[in-house]
Write a protein that binds this DNA or RNA. Structure first.
Lengths: 141, 141
DNA sequence: TTAAATTAAATTGTGCACAAGTTAATGTGG
DNA sequence: CCACATTAACTTGTGCACAATTTAATTTAA
């Protein structure tokens, strides 16, 4: 049981890092990191959103998001503004540059899939198994 | 393509963090982190090993390992010593406390599997798909 | 109405990851 | 033999993750 080869969790951990490093060269061209890319993707789907909403979708807390969002703000891809109706809430909006970045990012998923050298079928199979297990976690909590 | 739901990589990233947080309470009892646990597992299989050997098995470089190993040394679970035949190489050995920790860690995999609420079959399925894709990466590089 | 509880975000501190560069020891070709 | 390349580990700097605490705003309940 305590052998690395018999572990399931280590391959997941290794694959997760492998994926991030496959994304890196393509995201370097956009001057963002993988977690920043995830946040931008969430905002490209719906804009604006609160820190809480983004955190809920990505399973990240404000301890991770606050500094990350400040870095995206420093790159002028997003703006941060407290809501007047509830001063506790910070609303994140895309800047024009942030909206424009979506076009440049359009080719990233395809490039990554090519670089990972996997077929769409393998990816789908992987996703199905992973989400099945992830959903079990969510329903349990 | 740029929607979070259509992404394969995000579920992997999310599952990897989910796994680490499932391990956390059990590893807290041993006073080690998940990456530290991986290093200990590698050493329980073969002792001693060089920093390079450990790094090769876990896909981690010395920039990550050196400080991690120093923390394990501070906990007195391992010792670090330069080889006399080649002073560039640092050899990592388990201390008696490091060897003893294996017994305490024996139940961790089972406890984690229970806590994750998954069957052995699901885990095997997950592992098969993940390692298939991971191996493609390795052979490509 | 106001004291207590709750909530949202920020802050602080620790520990990975990893790129890039450094240091020191060992190998190698001329 | 010795300059040069290579190698192993270390160091430095940036950016996550995440636990724990703090701050400030809002909600609630007595």
């Amino acid at each position: 049981m305590l052998k690395l080869k018999s572990q399931v969790c280590f391959p997941i951990y290794a694959l997760s890092r492998e994926i991030t490093s496959t994304y890196r060269p393509f995201l370097d061209e956009l001057d963002i990191t993988y977690p920043q890319y995830l946040v931008m993707m969430v905002l490209w789907e719906e804009d604006p959103q609160t820190v809480n909403q983004i955190g809920h979708k990505l399973d990240l807390d404000s301890g991770t998001l606050t500094p990350l969002l400040k870095r995206l703000q420093a790159k002028e891809l997003i703006s941060r503004k407290r809501k007047s109706c509830d001063e506790r809430v910070v609303e994140i909006s895309l800047t024009p540059a942030g909206k424009n970045l979506e076009k440049a990012a359009e080719q990233v998923p395809l490039k990554v899939m090519e670089a990972m050298n996997v077929t769409a079928e393998e990816l789908q199979e992987l996703k199905d198994v992973v989400t099945k297990i992830l959903n079990k976690q969510r329903t349990r909590v």
